[in-house]
Design a protein around this nucleic acid. Structure first.
Length: 594
RNA sequence: GGAGCCGUGGUGUAGUCCGGUCAACAUGCCGGCCUGUCAAGCCGGAGAUCGCGGGUUCAAGUCCCGUCGGCUCCGCCA
């Protein structure tokens, strides 16, 4: 290489006029006028136009004619101003161009399978198979850079707050709860397996016992579950843990971190502290433990009226211990019967029995169920919903949890459909006071709502032995525009409490000892009170960047089937490798064996 | 584990419902002309047997069955 790049293409402006530069990058396009050839040269900073003139560039002009898109070239030349009529305001560098006097073709390129430009509409299949070309597109490089800046600023902020970045093992042991583990066979211990971490949870707690006091890690985590648009089998967390801290201390550090990231990376000024909503209230008002509060449409309880009405569906729901709640779909009174039937089918697919509805008109309610309510009951309903002419009231009756959940989904569905969600708002809020445990009817045992290491509210600790489902936890979730982006808790640091939880979860003593003995022992040697939180980093970045898929913010993501189209992973291995690992695959012919 | 959508020259689409101009349009690609373009332009050319396999039919891109791949959702993700 004789020409050495010394300038970034996209950063050249009028102030560089007169400079002798060498630019290098990829050829975006070529406009061949015969004796005059324009090249658009692109590097990660942007595009600059290079001009070759047959008269001036006689010695290598035939080389220029060979250049095609995506060739890698280096060009030496002088930055010159463009004449006023040839200025291109679409380019940041459009007021200048490079008048070439030297060229080196560093590498030719095949015609790429898709255009190297933003907003392409190509099969994602192709993009993933040629990921290096996909990433070469400016918007994708920008996302990689965006992610880098988030990580950099997170590190700066946490360092500033006294956190130490510490790595924990990738090869660890399988634990009984949680997601399916990715397993790694041990060559040296036949028949034994490592598991890739689902999160560094126990290690960071042990670091607290060790006296680290403030820890963080940009941690890769693995969960062998089915994928979604916002879920990959390997993903990254910003994982944190602090000793001697209350829930409020941790929430406040996290708020500082989020504010810092938005400030530094996007120049946005977030208001902190964030709103705090108890779980119960979130469920009752929004029907979700991760409510999108960028819009209202809150749930309204009419159980009392329903019980007193003559409408049997509502009446019996309440008599059976359930509820009747509804939402006001503002200005949706125009919906046709067909559209309302479709909504009914939708809520039924979510598990509701049916959907009650009332359209508010100038003359009163238009609804098949008006006759079951007295005029004063209808007035109360109108008042409770602040119902105006043209509104559509929708009701769900049933068991409390189910009714709330369905209404919560319906609320979001309608808001999207009606375009009620402000797109430029960044709404963060905390959900706290989650229940500690849920009852798993199938398994006939309790399950952790967060995870088994989450501490109960101190004052409700005594309830644990009496009425475990009543106990609330010191967990907290951070919700961003209706998406859970972080979650954490104050942890249990006393052995007796941890044992009590394990037993409620139905873990036998031997298993507690085998799987968690090391944690229990650690708690016997002066474990400080501690707690922490982890961000789903990919999801956070996706939302901040306004992307619909988590794959866009991961350099080399997997497909919905968990494959890497670029490398072909996962792939077969040799019999020799398997033998060495003491593994013998049992392949089932999915159809025949059943 | 289940459901839905998609799969036609390099790329994006049309044609598929109502089988019979077996293939159109745009862009890209190749060649020629062209000294001010930047979605350059003009002229000419090459390029798909319609994801794969099987079936129905005189005849299938078009209908049926299976299969592979991608996407989305439910289950799952403490």
């Amino acid at each position: 290489m004789t020409l050495k790049k010394n300038t970034n293409c996209g950063l050249l402006t009028k102030v560089n006029v007169g400079e002798k530069v060498v630019v290098a990058g990829w050829v975006q396009g070529r406009r061949d006028h015969g004796g005059l050839i324009f090249l658009d040269l692109r590097d990660r900073t942007g595009i600059v136009q290079v001009v070759f003139d047959q008269e001036k560039n006689k010695s290598f002009f035939n080389q220029v004619e060979k250049i095609r898109p995506e060739y890698v070239v280096a060009v030496g030349g002088k930055v010159v101003p463009r004449s006023p009529e040839t200025v291109n305001l679409k380019l940041k560098t459009g007021e200048i161009e490079i008048s070439a006097d030297a060229l080196e073709i560093l590498n030719p390129s095949l015609t790429p399978p898709f255009y190297i430009e933003n907003n392409i509409d190509t099969d994602e299949n192709l993009r993933l198979r040629y990921r290096y070309l996909d990433l070469r597109r400016p918007e994708m490089l920008e996302l990689l850079h965006f992610r880098h800046r988030i990580l950099l600023e997170a590190r700066k902020y946490l360092d500033g707050e006294g956190f130490w970045e510490i790595e924990t093992p990738m090869l660890t042991r399988s634990t009984p709860e949680g997601a399916r583990d990715y397993l790694v066979p041990s060559r040296i211990s036949p028949g034994s397996f490592f598991a890739l971490p689902q999160s560094p949870q126990l290690f960071k707690q042990l670091l607290m016992v060790a006296g680290v006091e403030k820890y963080f890690q940009i941690a890769r985590c693995f969960r062998d579950e089915d994928l979604r648009a916002d879920r990959q089998p390997e993903f990254t967390q910003i994982d944190m843990e602090m000793s001697f801290s209350s829930r409020e201390d941790i929430m406040s550090v996290v708020e500082g971190l989020v504010k810092h990231l938005f400030q530094q990376v996007q120049g946005k000024d977030l208001k902190i502290p964030f709103e705090v909503l108890p779980y119960r209230e979130a469920m009752e008002r929004f029907g979700s433990d991760r409510p999108d509060t960028r819009f209202a449409m809150e749930l309204v309880d009419i159980s009392e009226i329903a019980a007193a009405s003559q409408f049997r569906v509502f009446k019996t729901a309440v008599q059976d211990g359930g509820i009747v709640k509804g939402i006001n779909a503002k200005n949706c009174g125009r919906y046709s019967r067909k559209e309302i039937d479709d909504l009914t089918a939708l809520v039924q697919s979510w598990g509701a029995q049916g959907l009650g509805w009332m359209i508010v008109t100038g003359e009163g309610f238009k609804t098949p169920i008006a006759k079951f309510f007295s005029p004063s009951q209808l007035d109360t309903i109108r008042e409770k919903f602040d119902a105006r002419e043209g509104d559509l009231l929708l009701f769900i009756a049933g068991k409390r949890e189910k009714a709330l959940d369905v209404l919560g989904q319906l609320r979001v569905h309608l808001a999207r459909r009606e375009g009620l969600i402000p797109q430029n708002e960044d709404k963060f809020l905390w959900i706290v006071d989650f229940p500690l445990l849920a009852y798993d009817a199938e398994e006939k045992r309790y399950d952790s709502v967060h995870h088994p290491f989450t501490a109960p509210l101190e004052e409700e600790l005594p309830l644990l032995a009496v009425d475990p489902l009543k106990v609330r936890s010191q967990a907290y979730d951070l919700v961003y525009n209706g998406v859970e982006v972080a979650g954490g808790s104050i942890r249990i640091h006393r052995k007796e409490v941890q044992e009590q939880i394990f037993k409620l979860l139905g873990l036998p003593d031997e298993e507690i000892e085998e799987k968690f003995g090391f944690l229990m022992r650690a708690f016997e040697y002066g474990a400080p009170p501690h707690g922490g939180l982890a961000f789903g980093l990919d999801r956070l970045i996706m939302l901040m960047a306004g992307r619909k898929s988590i794959r866009d913010v991961i350099a080399f993501p997997k497909t919905a089937a968990g494959n890497c189209l670029l490398t072909g992973a996962p792939g077969p291995v040799s019999a020799g490798q398997l033998a060495e690992l003491h593994i013998s695959p049992v392949l089932r012919n999915n159809k025949k064996d059943v």
